[in-house]
Each structure stands twice: as C-alpha cells, then as structure tokens.
Nucleic acid binder design. Structure first.
Lengths: 369, 369
DNA sequence: GCATTCAATGACAGCGCTGTCAATAGGGGC
DNA sequence: GCCCCTATTGACAGCGCTGTCATTGAATGC
C-alpha cells in the first residue's frame, strides 16, 4: 500500500547542522554508566539474587520447563534487574554447540552475494544463529586464512561460496567435521553439501534460447574471468551449446577488473571497435556488464535489439527496470541463501538434507535479444 | 591492464551437466575423514607432542618471543602435525579480549550498506578481527534483539548503522562498556563514536546547487521514509534550504516499500500523472530511485534535463555509467567502513580516536540537473 | 501405610585456554 | 666463590557456563 502526502511529507525538528568534512575532538568522553560491581553480572550473581543454584538459574534462563514456573519467573526477574547478558563463549565452551555460522564470500561489491547473504542472515537469525563473515576477494590464500580463522571460533557450520579452494582449505573443512554448504554452484562434487544452480547449464540454456531466436554471430564480453569460476562455467556451457549447433563464438573479450556497469559499457565500445564484422549478439558475463552494454548502445545510438542484441545473467532488478528489459537468466540468489540456511539448520537438528540442492534458474526473455 | 583473446577465451574441460531444478539424495554420505582420537586436538595434546607444558605451547603459538626459538619451532611443528586449530572461545574466555566485532546494518539489499560492510570487513580482517553480522531490516525491535545476541558473544566492539534505536538498545550498548561506532550519520550525538556524513547537510547542499542552477518548481520522490531516518534527514535539509531561499517543495510523494529502481520508475510516472503543473526538478531519496526516474524518462520520451531535471543521492556507480550521468552526491561509503574499522582498532590498541568523524560528501554535478 | 515414581533442585567436574606467580638454570660482576 | 639478574619454563587457578549424576520431597498405587 502506498501513502502519499501532498506538499507535506514527514518533517522533523531542525537538527544540528554540520557542514562538510572534519571531526570533533573526543573531549567530553562521558564515563560509562554504572560499572556496577566492577564486572558484568554473571549467572552466579543472578542465581544468588534469585536464591537458587547456578544450574537452576541456567535452566530457568534457557527455558525448557525443567524448572518450576515460580522459580523460573524469579530467576528471569533477577536477570532483568541485573541487566544480565549471558556469555555464550562460556556456554558454548561448556555445553558444546555454538550458534555461530561461518560465512565466506568472494566479494560484496557484487550485489549477487549481498542478496545471498541477506537471505542467509534472515533465516539464520530466525533460527537463533549468527553469521560470522569473511570476504575472500577471490583470493584462495585469503580464503584459506579465513577458513582457519572462522574455524577457531568453533562455528556450528560453514557456508562458503568458493573462490578457488586450495587443497589445504578443503582439508581444513573436512577435518573440521561440521556441516559445510558450498553455495552458488552445483556443478562440482561438494565436500559436504552444495546449494546453487548449474552455471554450466545456465550458459547452455541461454545459448539455446538465442539460437532459437535466430542469432548467429555471437560475441562474449566478460570481466576478470579467471578468478570467477562461475562466469567461466557459464561461458563454457554457452560455447559448448553453440558448438553442438555448429556455431562458434565469433568474438570474445575479457577485461581485467571486477564486473561493473562501467566496465560493461566501456568494454562493449571496445569490442565493437575491434570487431571486423560486427556481432549480432553480445553475451555478457553478467547483468552488471550487460546493463553497461545497454547504456553504451543508448549513448551510441545503437538500436537494441535491432542493430545489436544483448544478453546477461542474474536477472538483476536493474536490468528488468531498464526501458528495454534485459534478456537474462534469473539466478535465484535469495533462494540460495535461504536454502543454504535450511540445509544447515536441518543438519543442526539431526536431519539429513539432500547433498546437492539445485534451486534452478529461469530464463527471462526480456526485450534485448 | 586488460588482456583480450580473440576467439579463444579461457576454456575448461567439460564438466558434468545438470539441467534445471532438483536435488540428489544424500546417499553416499562419506564418513568424516579421521576423527583422530575422537575429538579435535587441544593445546595440551600439542604440548605433550612437543614435550613442553601447556602454557609454554600457548606462548609459543601466540608468538611474542617469550619462548626459546628451538622450543617454539618444536611446538609449531607439533601443532602442524596434529592439525591443531586453536579454540578462541576458550582463549577469549580465559584471556579476555575477543577478536570479534558485532556489525548491525538495517539492510543488505541496498548496495550502500554492502559497500560499507566491504570496507569494514577488509580492514577488520587485516587487523585480525572478524565481523559478526546482523541485519535489522529497519526494525527497532529486531535491532535490539540483535544487539543482545551480539553482546552475548562478548565482541571487542560494535559497529551499528542505527535504524531507530530504542532506549533499551542504547542502554544495552552503554552498559556493555565497549567501543561502539555508529555509522552513516553524524547529525546526532552518538553514544560513543560516530562515523559518517551529515545527511542533513547533504540535503541542503543539493538544494543550494539546484537553486543555483535556476530550478524553481521542486518535487520530491522517496521510498518508505519513516523508517529510513537518513533519507528523512536529507529531505529535511533540502526543504530547509529551499525555505531559506523563499522556495517550497511543490510536490512530495513517498511510496511504501524499500528503495529500488523499479519503485523510482513507477513512482515518477505516478508523480507526474498526479502533478498539476509539472515540476522542473525531482529530487529522489537516493540514486536507486533516481535511476528508475531516468529510465521512466527514457521510456516516456521525456528529455532530461530539458523537460525535467533529476537528482539523487549516493553517487552510485550505476548512476554515473548512465548515458546521461546522474546529478548526485557521493556518500563515501567505503570510506565510512574503513574509517569505522580504524576507530575501533585504534580504540582496541589503547588510542582515543575522535568522537565524531565526518568523512564528507561530494556533489557530483552530472548531467541530469 | 509403604514402596515407587516423578518433578524440582543441587553438587561437581570440566570445556580449552591464559594470567599470575613461582621455580629453575645459566651468566656475569665483584 | 658467591650473589644477583635474566631467560626460560612450569604449576595453579579460574574465565562463565552446562552435562551428568545425585538428592530431596511429594504424589501415586496397591
């Protein structure tokens, strides 16, 4: 439901205004309020306040009905009064299973991973788990270091979008002997579980679609593809399907740097400049790049798809909001995060989810190809 | 540096292909490799293997030169042989300071926060800290729950982009008595430290710029603004500056839902449909919305900025890659993350960074206004 | 009425590690 | 030759909590 308001949108009282860039000294560092008895309250203090033993307090606070209602109420009241915040480090150390989940992603500048993380966080949080994050920047060494670091927190599980795992990384995960979900790609055999789509198939599917639309002179424009294994898999599938149909990739340009609208825009300009006979379709490594391509065409007066057709991957919102919606493949990103969370949680609760879960993709016809 | 390759982009061996959506049963669940002696190795096992006491092993592993070189080497070798992974839960519990940092953001679907998180993670990671993430979805109650949860892991510090902190949330943070960085906005007095820009000033700056360009009939198009306090602050500053110049906001439309290109596109259509006398400029709550506005104009044949001028906020890459680059304000997102990390780390190491750090913004003239 | 059962609570030990203080052994100074 | 100092190592306790078993008292059954 939308609500509008004529010329009187929400206002707020005038607040202090700071112009430009600068910083204020940390002068009046207000002393922390109430360091009550030196430290933060512990369970034993709560127990004492409620007149019960530590373990009873523990049980009362964790719930589970092992404690008489009246007692439990008393304990909870005491905890509230003392502003007790449990120490899960101690709890986990003593009791066993952590409620943290290690999450390793190759990047966050790509909105794809942000979407996955969003879905993942939401479900984990609801189940009482907290993600501990690491970004590998597509660097296998950093990825390995992250795995070690995260494991040292003894997480309940790991979710990883592998960049290019070293053998050592894989060994670490295997030895750790905890649920591990490898996300994004289901083409390779996972260490433990995998949730994602087949990027190889996605590439093939797009090729089939485009062949069916009658395109014949294909070009590819990609970003630093060596470190993006999934983009490589799509290209591989794309080219494979072309080959089976007796076609080839007439032109193929990959640019250093991570994918972006800007790179796609500049890249397309360059690709067309270098082309002998221009392609009738350009397949981009993803939607960011493809949207850049659309922008180039707009600016250069190239009619899409009349003069040149464009196709991407991911089904990003921006591509669909374009004046001419982008031909792409919806990669079901949020579903991957949600599904990964489900796998972990199921495992935590004693279940045995499928080893490989393919959330599937969907071709979006769009209007650019 | 770019590298291109004619028609022979990187290939890879054909990999197994899975079509469409589905899942394979978890049949051959390979038994975990080597649960060596039932559990994972502990420090005491490493110590035993190296023929030293636990504490010596601990010191050797942590470095610091308190242990004779030869002994340290022996311990490290033993640790490697046993595949020892330290248990930081135990370490933190015994020793004191954690190496986790709680991070609370209102959303991740907005690339702005992904950018901040990216910068933050990078610096924290380099300093040996791990972010533990929570997403509040602009919900104060969830925000408070997240604070409680994160505090229970006894993090070394907290970074929070406040959605609309409850009194209880604020009290939790104060009592926790740890470094807290409130990010994004420096307009209000922070609990502890703040890193960001003044959104109020950003709104004013844009108003001044646009007034200088001669626009007089202003409209505003925003998303669910009640929960996005920073967008509200910008609008507030914008309107304030207009008022000082004797101008008013002729039209103001806010739409339910989070900001998106689609919402901006549809919103602008609606705003123009509802307008009596059409505005000569539309100020959007942010660049996502504004890009949507640009798309609407393209599709509807409205010339920008001739017929209608548009302005946004954030300086997103997409806006600048548009055929007509967007007039906007660069909000220095990565810098906020980096700066927040710096503040925390400085605090961890005994320093006293500034209480408020304004990373500043920059007006991007663009070509849409 | 007495054994039996169950609900409610508690004592104890220990999770894996590190801070503190103590012990040991050489080396150097006088 | 004796004492002091430093470098190196270790013993001990304890971080805050929970699993396991034990204890208590009251309710139940016959």
């Amino acid at each position: 439901m939308n609500h509008k308001s004529g010329a009187n949108c929400p206002k707020r009282n005038d607040s202090p205004v700071i112009y430009g860039h600068g910083s204020r000294a940390m002068d009046d560092h207000n002393t922390p309020v109430s360091p009550p008895s030196g430290r933060r309250p512990t369970l034993s203090q709560v127990a004492a306040a409620a007149g019960v033993s530590e373990i009873t307090a523990s049980r009362a606070l964790r719930g589970g009905g092992l404690v008489a209602k009246a007692t439990a109420d008393r304990v909870q009241a005491a905890a509230r009064d003392l502003n007790y915040v449990p120490n899960r480090l101690a709890g986990t150390l003593a009791g066993g299973s952590s409620r943290q989940v290690g999450v390793i992603l190759p990047s966050l500048s790509n909105s794809v991973f942000a979407d996955v993380l969003n879905g993942l966080e939401d479900r984990l949080e609801d189940a009482g788990y907290q993600p501990v994050l690491g970004i590998s920047n597509y660097d296998p060494a950093r990825e390995q270091r992250l795995i070690e670091n995260l494991l040292s927190w003894r997480p309940a599980g790991i979710v990883i979008a592998p960049a290019d795992m070293t053998e050592a990384s894989r060994a670490l995960l295997v030895r750790a002997d905890l649920p591990v979900v490898e996300i994004m790609d289901v083409d390779a055999a996972p260490t433990d579980m995998a949730v994602g789509i087949s990027h190889h198939s996605a590439g093939r599917a797009m090729a089939h679609y485009l062949l069916g639309r009658g395109y014949r002179r294909f070009a590819y424009l990609g970003h630093a593809i060596d470190s993006d294994l999934r983009a490589l898999a799509r290209l591989d599938g794309f080219r494979g399907a072309l080959g089976e149909a007796g076609q080839t990739l007439a032109q193929c340009l990959t640019l250093a740097g991570s994918s972006s609208v800007k790179l796609g825009r500049e890249g397309l300009a360059r690709l067309l400049a270098e082309a002998g006979q221009p392609p009738d379709l350009v397949y981009f490594s993803n939607d960011d790049m493809a949207v850049g391509g659309v922008f180039h065409c707009m600016a250069a007066g190239i009619s899409v798809p009349g003069d040149l057709a464009l196709a991407g991957f991911n089904g990003l919102e921006i591509g669909q909001a374009l004046p001419v919606p982008l031909t792409s493949i919806a990669s079901n990103r949020a579903a991957i995060g949600i599904e990964a969370a489900r796998h972990l949680i199921e495992r935590f609760t004693g279940g045995t989810p499928e080893k490989i879960s393919d959330v599937g993709f969907r071709l979006i016809p769009g209007k650019t190809a």
